[in-house]
Amino acid sequence: MKWLSILGILVITILIILYEWPKLKKNQKKEKKAFAVLLLTSVTLSIVLLYFPDIPGPTELIDTIFKPFGNLLSNL
């Protein structure tokens, strides 16, 4: 089943590229970079998550930073 999900991810990625890339003009270097970086992050992240669904995410990060204050709140 995993390969099907990967296929799905790739199809979506290709569709996004096919739709968006031709619209980017030659001189829009920054936009191209941003587009590529964001898309690449999403794709990698989605594939990584597919294999390791339990890796700590942003919620865990925020939890470790703000938890002490959060506990304070619930102990009021």
């Binding site: 968006e20 936009e31 992240l45 995410g57």
Partner: peptide, 27 residues
């Protein structure tokens, strides 16, 4: 923030990221 001339190119990549995040934020 990135100083782009148009926000359209990043709409779909960010949307993709949002979907991934929605799964990632919580088990």
């Amino acid at each position: 923030w990135l100083g782009l001339t148009s926000y359209r190119p990043i709409v779909f990549p960010i949307g993709f990221l949002l979907v991934v995040l929605s799964i990632w934020v919580t088990p």
